[in-house]
Amino acid sequence: MKLQTHFALLDEGSKQEIRRTILKAVAIPGYQVPFASREMPIARGWGTGGLQITLSIIGKKDILKVIDQGSDESVNAVNIKKLVTKTTAVETTDETKEATLIQSRHRIPEVPLKSNQILVLQVPIPEPLRQIEASELKTKALHAEQEYSGAWLMLFEQIMKYGKTATDADHPVLVHNRYVMAPSPIPKYDNDKIHQSEALLLFGAGREKKIYAVPPFTNVTSLAFEDYPFEVESFEGKACHLCKTTKAFMDELVDELTNEPYYACNDTSACLSRLNQNEARMEVDVHVAK
């Protein structure tokens, strides 16, 4: 009883169905298309939606990058990468620029994406109105009628209570002036990268059995009021302790000796390439000085 694993694990029928779902998602930007999500060898909630998209669209020539909360080496990123390469033997990379297919959990890479790249984001709760309305039947109707006052009221109530909007990751966006969409729990810092992105963005929610998309060059705005504009996380006055940049989303770390906080770039691959650039520049300087 020895069974061979199919290329990219899923049988071709399943892949075809998922690709059709993706096409529909691309055709209706921001609309959540239901699909018969398969049970995967990794747990539901650990990126099975993203994984099913990746496995359905990956080809032998693709170069794959997988990140989890900004890191290529996070255990779950490694695990997903391992599963995809084991069943496809495609090349992998940590360099955002080199990748043709990027699967990510909760971050959009800081190196700007290009038109020959596809970003697949893992989504826990695809429904941006779920906190306001628990029933799927009702939220479907709200989207159909473009009835988004619940989402606006949520922001308004926060302003009344706290003096400003208090959303964190997964701040809802309006796609192509039609659908309010959950951008997946990316920090607000990443929201603007979806707007007019050159790369195709695909969102997969395995447990919730939904796929949605933002095609390249689509208008995407974060929900906000004119007098309370959208605000991203602030790292003012903070610099990465490795590459020294001040323009990045940072992880806050604590020095075990002094108990003082210090900061590091969250996108480890972007940090690494900055480090290498700095190094190269220093070598040139040394050379010129000679």
Partner: peptide, 28 residues
């Protein structure tokens, strides 16, 4: 699979999402 999967995903790192939450709480 669905219930155990989503409960167990809480073991995954949430560094970015928590940093975002921290930022929001600190600003307020």
């Amino acid at each position: 699979l669905e219930s155990s999967g989503f409960i167990s995903h809480l073991k995954l790192p949430h560094y970015v999402t928590f940093q975002s939450k921290l930022d929001s709480v600190r600003k307020i």
